[in-house]
């Protein structure tokens, strides 16, 4: 049984910030509700106010400005997957959005929701991490830009203050020559939480790797860039053996962050393989 709550539908960001401020931490934001409603139903969430932000036009836009692409917090996964500009300038994110859940979930679930829910397995997070995405956060007190990587505190926990609202994500457009890919593994082919998800972005100049960024989801408490592997690969010649060695760096990072668990014997070889697969997929595309 879902305990009673007030339901507010503001039309502007300012109104939302006022409502959040007044609620003193007892409010929850709803957009698609694909995570929140489950939380309400199983008792994990019991807010006294729910603020529906889907009527705020500003949050529903995908905008190009010079070299930046910005996506409003309530843009749905379906909209991201079908947006020509996201496909052009951030294909890795577009690919990930198209694989989330099911058509029903993609039609209502939003990118902002996927971020602030902070699930270690969230599919848009590894792509956003390799895109060096920034979040624009607004509250009654201030407005700030925060690198996505600094937004997470732990599984299902963000650094956002209760009265803050994530309004937008933005990243630098990828140049056409940049290679990228997203690889996902789950227990079934739809409507399943990722067992692992890998995003990579890099360039190849004179057969050497440049500006490589690697992020792996579902294997660490918060989404992480695999900086050990990145440093190892940067400037190196792209060879099979090298990828194999780099994949060991990826699994090392996983184990360092998450420790040895019963699932490690499975995850270790698989994360290595999926990383290599992501690199090869990026080269093919």
């Amino acid at each position: 049984m879902i305990p009673p709550f007030e339901y507010k539908i503001p039309n502007t960001i300012e109104e939302t910030c006022d409502l959040l401020w007044k609620a003193k931490g007892k409010a929850k934001i709803i957009a698609g509700g694909t995570d929140l409603v489950i939380g309400l139903r199983n008792g994990d969430q019991a807010p006294s106010v729910i603020i529906d932000i889907t009527r705020i036009e500003q949050l529903r836009k995908i905008e190009e400005k010079n070299s930046t692409l910005s996506i409003g917090a309530t843009v749905t996964h379906s909209e991201i997957a079908s947006s020509p500009s996201v496909r052009k300038y951030g294909k890795v994110l577009s690919d990930a959005a198209s694989e989330i859940g099911s058509p029903q979930i993609r039609n209502v679930g939003t990118i902002g929701g996927n971020i602030v829910n902070a699930s270690p397995a969230a599919d848009t997070l590894p792509p956003l991490m390799v895109l060096n995405a920034m979040g624009r956060v607004i509250s009654k007190e201030e407005e700030r830009q925060v690198p996505l990587a600094q937004l997470f505190k732990g599984p299902y926990q963000t650094q956002l203050k209760p009265h803050e609202l994530l309004v937008q994500i933005s990243f630098q457009k990828l140049h056409p020559e940049v290679k990228s890919s997203f690889v996902r593994l789950a227990r079934r082919d739809a409507m399943a939480i990722a067992r692992m998800n890998v995003a990579v972005v890099f360039q190849v100049e004179q057969s050497r790797i440049k500006d490589i960024r690697i992020a792996v989801g579902s294997v660490t408490p918060t989404p992480q860039r695999m900086s050990g592997a990145e440093t190892f690969l940067e400037g190196e010649k792209l060879e099979e053996k090298l990828l194999k060695k780099a994949s060991l760096k990826v699994s090392e990072t996983m184990i360092r962050q998450s420790g040895i668990r019963p699932s490690t014997s499975y995850k270790q070889p698989v994360v290595e393989a999926l990383f290599i697969r992501a690199m090869k997929k990026a080269l093919e595309e």
């Binding site: 489950i38 079934r188 739809a190």
Partner: peptide
């Protein structure tokens, strides 16, 4: 391939997986 009920752990279709049309 996937159906595996565990008493006290599997609670609903969220964590008890059955094949979808894609599987």
């Amino acid at each position: 391939l996937m159906e595996e009920y565990v008493p006290g752990e599997k609670t609903s279709f969220v964590n008890y997986l059955i094949p979808t049309s894609k599987d």
